[in-house]
């Protein structure tokens, strides 16, 4: 039975391959980035990578700028991050860094400090024997001068995990990135869910026949709750609440709203299909 809506990503062949690849690189990882419960679908993805490495017997220490993450330590972003990277490089053999809003750069840095920060980060990152970058989508690749100053950062990784589609196209435009190092992951949150043609699925007729009014009430509750969740996420999105709250540590970033919407839609459609079947069966 597949219940719950969050663990679907890692069980694809591609993502298993990514975890297997990482597991073969080291026994001892430090993951720097946002992991669930924070960070929407991307947080779930990085959390799953950490969890699956741990299930394979690896040591994984998580440092996150978001206090809501299931992390071992909360760390600052921007220049404050660098001492932590330096200290961790002396402990862990492999770094998994997530590139996401606010990490590794503080969102408030202007162009010059940002360039300095990136190059300093590259130095700190290179102190790790193994270095992996996982990119949230969409990737924020600076163009022009910003892009050139970012070269040392992008070239400091052994592997770069990106989502397919536009992200892959965008990273191909960076001449200094060795495409042999780029791995395409399954999409993160918003297309985890194959809703398919749910009303055509086979159902256990005995279960349908024995359904109680309490269970029907629960289904209605489930569907209404998800409809409410979709509306709330869509409203917050259109009101720009997500944009405003996108600072690290605040609630409901855009990616979280997006993830919330698609998760709700998935469960909404599933419960709708069962209610339809029940209506026909009763």
């Amino acid at each position: 039975m597949e219940v719950g809506n969050t663990a679907n990503g890692i069980n694809t062949e591609t993502d298993n391959n990514i975890v297997n690849l990482l597991a073969g690189l080291s026994e001892d990882f430090v993951l720097v980035g946002t992991v669930a419960p924070a960070g929407g679908g991307f947080g779930l993805y990085t959390g799953l990578v950490a969890a699956e490495l741990a299930m394979r017997g690896k040591s994984v220490r998580i440092l996150s700028p978001d206090r809501r993450s299931a992390a071992d330590k909360t760390i600052p972003t921007g220049p404050g991050l660098l001492p932590h990277l330096t200290v961790e490089a002396k402990k862990a053999k492999a770094l998994i860094l997530s590139l996401e809003p606010g990490l590794p750069f503080s969102p408030n840095l202007t162009r010059v400090p940002r360039a300095v920060m990136l190059n300093a980060a590259a130095l700190a990152i290179k102190a790790f024997p193994v270095r992996i970058l996982i990119c949230d989508t969409p990737i924020q690749v600076p163009g022009g001068i910003g892009g050139r100053t970012a070269q040392s950062f992008w070239t400091s990784f052994d592997h770069i995990v990106v989502r397919g589609g536009e992200d892959l196209t965008q990273i191909r435009e960076l001449p200094y990135v060795d495409m042999g190092k780029v791995i395409v992951a399954e999409p993160f949150a918003d297309s985890f869910f194959d809703t398919g043609n749910l009303s055509e699925r086979a159902y256990d007729e005995d279960l349908i026949a024995s359904f109680s009014s309490e269970q029907v009430a629960y289904l209605l509750h489930l569907r209404a709750g998800r409809a409410r969740q979709m509306t709330d996420a869509a409203n917050d999105f259109s009101l720009g609440t997500g944009e405003k709250n996108q600072a690290v540590g605040a609630k409901a970033s855009l990616r979280e709203l997006k993830s919330s919407f698609y998760t709700a839609k998935y469960v909404y459609n599933r419960s709708k299909a069962v209610l339809k079947k029940l209506a026909n069966g009763i």
């Binding site: 663990a7 890692i10 299930m55 809501r68």
Partner: peptide, 22 residues
């Protein structure tokens, strides 16, 4: 968030549940 996250957390428990919930 501070009240919830700064008393105690068990990251390993959360991640185990995340990966094994099925």
């Amino acid at each position: 968030d501070i009240w919830l996250n700064e008393r105690f957390r068990a990251p390993g428990l959360y991640l185990y549940l995340l990966s094994q919930q099925r």
